[in-house]
């Protein structure tokens, strides 16, 4: 049946279209106002960026980074404190990048070299990073007025650099996964670890790369988010990791690694974004939004799995 074929291959896209139409009708067209479409993009920038990195991590064999949300808060906090004390915006931005790389490197080392489970490592680092961020903020919400920072990451002034950042992040993920030779190694590693290693793929290097990439993207996300809000405060980023992971799974990335495309991830992010926004415009309570998000995640993982089954990989 041709229709079933089409549905099976593009179920995500179909779902996206249906849901968008649903909310469009419910909101009497308001969903499609230019302002709201812009909102959709701006409110989900962090998802696009973080999911791109998470995508690469998951591809390597089901590895995650649960700490990226806390890291966004930490990186933002450090940058704002520095600028508060008179540091130049450009320097602060460089420091942000460095911190992202360092965090990524530590994760990559522990997970790649020592083979510690990524869930546990990043759960622990999430805790540590959140603690440090709170200590730095001391309970205060900080703001920024550095020209360079706002120009690069801010929303209303001048050229929308933030858009470029999102684009770059996604395209980097595309390049890595589709075109670079590294990408083939990543897929191989995620697909079948044993054969990948025996054929000489350097597992440690790949995992280090994946996590450092994630770290860089986390720094970019930190800039973009804090630039948009103009502030950084305690509790920033609490749901970010889950949102990024959800986008990946809804987008059809195989949960144990080795399968998935970035286009799916973006579609997944957009889907969640539309649902969030649609519900928000309707005035639906945020708690119901969470329930729906959870259910969608379950359905997505289930259906993605059932539709793409290719035999037992495990016992």
């Amino acid at each position: 049946m041709k229709i079933r074929e089409f549905l099976r291959n593009n179920y995500l896209f179909v779902a996206f279209v249906l849901i968008t139409i649903l909310f469009g009708v419910l909101s009497e067209g308001k969903l499609f106002y230019a302002g709201n479409i812009l909102n959709l993009f701006q409110q989900n920038m962090y998802v696009f960026i973080l999911a791109s990195g998470m995508f690469i991590c998951i591809l390597t064999g089901g590895n995650t980074d649960l700490s990226c949300g806390s890291a966004v808060c930490l990186i933002g906090a450090i940058a704002f404190r520095m600028m508060e004390n008179g540091t130049d915006g450009a320097v602060a931005i460089l420091v942000m990048l460095m911190i992202g790389i360092i965090i990524g490197a530590i994760h990559g080392y522990l997970i790649g070299r020592f083979r510690l489970p990524s869930i546990i490592v990043t759960l622990a680092s999430m805790s540590i990073i959140r603690g440090i961020a709170n200590l730095i903020l001391g309970g205060y919400t900080l703001s920024v007025d550095d020209e360079i920072y706002l120009k690069l990451f801010g929303i209303s002034k001048g050229f929308p650099f933030y858009f470029v950042f999102v684009l770059l992040s996604v395209m980097a993920a595309v390049y890595i996964s589709e075109f670079a030779p590294l990408g083939k190694h990543i897929y191989a590693l995620g697909g079948n670890r044993h054969s990948a290693r025996t054929s000489g793929i350097n597992e440690i290097k790949i995992i280090m790369f994946a996590y450092i990439f994630m770290g860089i993207l986390t720094a970019i996300a930190a800039g973009v988010v804090t630039g948009r809000m103009g502030i950084v405060g305690p509790g920033l980023g609490e749901t970010y990791a889950m949102d990024a992971i959800a986008a990946c799974f809804i987008g059809g990335v195989s949960v144990s690694g080795g399968k998935g495309k970035i286009s799916g991830v973006i579609m997944g992010a957009l889907l969640m974004g539309v649902i969030n926004q649609g519900m928000s415009i309707q005035g639906l309570s945020v708690n119901y939004q969470n329930v729906i998000k959870g259910i969608i995640l379950v359905l997505a993982v289930l259906s993605g799995y059932l539709l793409n089954r290719e035999g037992d990989k495990r016992l």
Partner: peptide, 21 residues
């Protein structure tokens, strides 16, 4: 209502209302 008095959530809701109405 704004869960946890969260600034980001308040901002998102405000943005959506502004763009819609």
């Amino acid at each position: 209502a704004t869960p946890s008095w969260n600034t980001e959530k308040a901002q998102q809701r405000a943005e959506n209302i502004l763009a819609s109405y």
